[in-house]
């Protein structure tokens, strides 16, 4: 019988653990070949491509960390296991419309139905849409580890292509986005192959009085903050399947201007 592609497709076997508490989950992590599993959408792609062959996946779905709340300081608190779709539909996002707009064009409905906020932030693919926006908005994550909790800016999570600053025995448990206040924000991306494709470039702009935060993604190996609009010219841009460095450099000029324009005219 002809079995085309069978070898590339089938996943290699692993053990699936389903802890019921955060403490139990943390105790299962740490060893070589062990990975947390949230929505699994990114993990499945890496396992199918053979770049990841875990021996054990630790599923976080029973930890009860999927609430969306508004904190006392007016901040948005999102449990790591909240699906992107649940966040997109949350009435609380009325106060952060730029996040709702960004989610609406992030991949497709089926992926958003399953992918989670924690998995999204922990994956470290520089083409992802929320890390640049959340970095520009000054968002932080709560990270649980064997020694307790720490808080870190989303911006400090990324060390390089698919590399994060998370230790192997740490888990993101919550995302905190500060209140918008009088800030205005925009996130624009350019997809070059189809509307729902991974972006060739992402640009997030947040205007806060005289202060402007600009974070660029997809053209660099991790979300990268620009100290000024002029700094765009000196940015080290990478080529990939979605466009050459030269093309992306031109895209950045155009999209940066558009994103600033859109942020200026945004109601938030």
């Amino acid at each position: 019988m002809l079995k085309i592609g069978e070898e590339e497709r089938g996943l290699s076997p692993f053990e699936l653990a389903e802890p019921r508490s955060l403490r139990e989950a943390l105790a299962l992590l740490g060893a070589d070949g062990v990975r947390p599993l949230s929505g699994g959408t990114a993990l499945m792609l890496m396992m199918k491509a053979g770049v990841l062959r875990p021996t054990r996946l630790v599923n976080l779905r029973r930890l009860g960390i999927d609430q969306i709340e508004r904190g006392n300081g007016g901040e948005l608190r999102v449990g790591a296991m909240t699906t992107l779709r649940a966040l997109e539909k949350s009435p609380l996002l009325k106060e952060w419309p730029v996040i709702a707009r960004t989610l609406r064009t992030l991949s497709n409905v089926r992926v958003r139905n399953v992918a989670t906020v924690g998995g999204h932030l922990a994956h470290g693919d520089p083409h992802m849409d929320l890390p640049p926006l959340l970095s520009a908005l000054g968002a932080t994550v709560t990270i649980a580890g064997p020694k307790g909790e720490r808080t870190t800016p989303v911006e400090a999570l990324y060390a390089g292509y698919l590399e994060t600053t998370l230790a192997r025995n740490e888990l993101i448990t919550q995302l905190l986005v500060p209140a918008m206040g009088a800030r205005r924000a925009a996130y624009l991306k350019c997809t070059t192959r189809s509307a729902d494709d991974w972006p060739a470039l992402g640009v997030a702009v947040v205007l806060d009085g005289r202060k402007t935060s600009i974070v660029v993604s997809a053209a660099t190996d991790r979300p990268t903050r620009l100290a000024s609009v002029e700094a765009a010219e000196g940015l080290r841009i990478e080529s990939d399947l979605h466009g050459s460095a030269q093309y992306k450099k031109q895209l950045l000029r155009v999209y940066l201007a558009r994103a600033i324009h859109e942020a200026r005219h945004a109601s938030h």
């Binding site: 499945m44 089926r110 399953v114």
Partner: peptide, 29 residues
């Protein structure tokens, strides 16, 4: 399964009423 990557929707299945890509969804879940 067609693309096997969540892109094409040929493997769409509803799990508790929610559409998922069956090619990216572990059966055990």
């Amino acid at each position: 399964e067609s693309c096997g990557q969540g892109l094409c929707g040929c493997c769409t299945v509803l799990v508790d009423g929610t559409a998922v890509s069956g090619c990216l969804y572990l059966a055990a879940l």
